[in-house]
Nucleic acid binder design. Structure first.
Lengths: 243, 243
DNA sequence: TGCCATTTGTTCGTATGTATC
DNA sequence: TGATACATACGAACAAATGGC
C-alpha cells in the first residue's frame, strides 16, 4: 500500500489513500478512523499519519475534534451574493432564511480606517455592532458594523436581532445602499475561527462595505464581513443595466 | 524565557517571543535564525521550534526555504482593482506595469462549467491559455483563459505575451468587457503555490470572470484568476454612475 | 564539476498531557 | 472513573535542498 522507495513522501501517499478511501465507504459527517487504526493499517508511525491528516484538514476534506475523532467534512453549498444586494436579501432570494445574532454592541471613538470610511473626525463617537449570521443553523459570517452615533443612537439601545438594514428602514425610514466593497482573502484569527465554527485551516473571504443613505447620499454604515470561504461566493455584476 | 508550567503551550510562547524579537532587530526580507539556533536559545526540542515557526508562517510573518533558512516576510502592498477595469488597466493606473508570461496554450473540448459559461455545446473546441502575471517582478496572479476556438483561432498561434485584452483589440478590433465576476477564496494547490512563489500557508482569491464583446454582446472569454491574497484587494463599485 | 557544511523536511520512537464520552 | 482519541514535547536519524569552495 505504501511505497517506501517512491520519491513521493509517505505522508502524501497516505493522504491520497485516505482521500480515495473516503470516496468509497464514507459520507460527509461520518467519523473517520482513529490515528491508531490508521497507524496500524498503513504500518507507519503515528506522526506520519498525523501529517497526512493535517494535509487533508488543510484541504478541507477532514475535520478534527480533540479527544473525539476525525470526521469527513461536510460539503457545503456556495451561496451567491449579488453585488447590489444586501446579504439578507440575497440569501432570502435563494429561499433560505438568515438568522442574526447580536454578539456585542459598544461605542468606540473613530480613528484610522473607520474614521476615514465614515468621513468622521478622529475621536467622534461610533457605534460598533458585531453580529453573527447563520443559515440553516450553520455559521456563515461575522459582521462588524460601524455607524456614526450622532446619526442613529437608537441602534445601540434597540437593535437586538434581525437584519440591520431592516432596522434602519423601520426606525429611520432609511434605505441603506451599498456603494462600494473591498474584497480580500485571509486566514481567520482564533476568535473568528471559534465564532464561525471553523477549524483554522480554511481561509475567510473578507468584504469591507460602505453603505450610504439612498436619499441624502450620506454615508451611514461601514462594515467588515468575514465569510466562511466554504459557504460563500460573491457574484459581482458590472453595471448590468448600462449600455 | 519559557514557562514550562504555564497553561499556554510552549510552542505558542515561543511563537510570541519570536514575533516580538522580529520587531526589535529584524526587517522584512531578513534571514531569521536557524532552527538549531532557536532550539538552543529557547532550550526546547527542534520539533517544538518548528511548530512555533509553523504558526508564524501560517500568520504570514515568516517564510521558509528548504535548505536555506527562514525569512521575515515582506509586507506587500495591496493593489486595488476596480470592478469594471481589466487587471492590466487597473494596475497601470497605479503607475506600475504588469509583466505577462504565457505558460501554456492548448486546445481542449468544452464541458462542464467552461461549456456552460461560454455557452458552447459539450465537445466544441476551446482554446485554453495559462498566463502568469507579475508586478515589480513579484508573482501576482495565475490566470486561465478560455476562448471559443471558432471565434479566435489566432490566439493559439500568435498570442505570446502582453495583455490578452490588448491582443484581442489589435487582432480583431474587439474590446472585451467584463460582465460578471464570481469571487471566492480558497487554499492554493501545490502547483499554484509553486507558480505564485507562495509558501502554502496563505489563501488565494479566486475570481471567475466572464467577458463579452462590447459590440456584438457575444461571450468571448471565460477566465479563472488566482491572486495572491497578500498582494491584492478587489475594489467593487456598485453602479457608481447610477442615481 | 563535485564535495562539504548548513538548513529545512521527513520519519521513527517514546512519553505525557488533555479532551470527550 | 476509565477508556479512547487527539495534542504536545522530547530525542534520534536520515533525506533533500542550498550555497560556497
Amino acid at each position: 500500500m505504501i511505497d517506501r522507495y517512491s520519491p513521493e513522501k509517505i505522508y502524501m501517499q497516505i493522504a491520497k489513500a485516505i482521500e480515495s478511501d473516503l470516496q468509497e465507504g464514507f459520507e460527509a459527517g461520518d467519523l473517520y478512523l482513529s490515528e491508531k487504526t490508521l497507524t496500524e493499517k498503513f504500518g507507519v508511525n503515528r506522526h506520519t499519519v498525523r501529517r497526512s491528516i493535517e494535509e487533508l484538514v488543510k484541504q478541507g476534506v477532514l475535520e478534527k475534534r480533540h479527544g473525539f475523532g476525525t470526521f469527513v467534512a461536510e460539503k457545503r453549498l456556495a451561496y451567491r451574493i449579488k453585488g447590489h444586494q444586501r446579504l439578507t436579501e440575497a440569501v432570502e432570494a435563494n429561499g433560505l432564511s438568515v438568522e442574526t445574532t447580536v454578539l456585542s454592541k459598544s461605542t468606540i471613538l473613530a480613528r484610522g480606517s473607520i474614521a476615514e470610511n465614515l468621513q468622521l473626525k478622529n475621536g467622534e463617537e461610533v457605534i460598533q455592532v458585531n453580529t453573527l449570521r447563520k443559515i440553516d443553523n450553520k455559521e456563515l459570517a461575522l459582521i462588524s458594523h460601524f455607524l456614526p452615533k450622532a446619526f442613529c443612537p437608537e441602534v445601540l439601545e434597540s437593535y437586538e436581532s434581525g437584519s440591520l438594514g431592516s432596522f434602519l428602514i423601520n426606525v429611520y425610514g432609511i434605505k441603506a445602499k451599498r456603494i462600494s466593497s473591498l474584497v480580500s482573502s485571509a486566514m481567520p484569527n482564533a476568535s473568528d475561527n471559534f465564532q464561525l465554527g471553523m477549524m483554522g485551516s480554511q481561509p475567510i473571504l473578507k468584504v469591507k462595505t460602505l453603505n450610504k443613505d439612498d436619499v441624502s447620499g450620506k454615508i451611514i454604515e461601514y462594515s467588515v464581513s468575514r465569510f466562511r470561504s466554504d459557504m460563500i461566493q460573491l457574484e459581482i455584476l458590472i453595471n448590468p443595466e448600462q449600455p
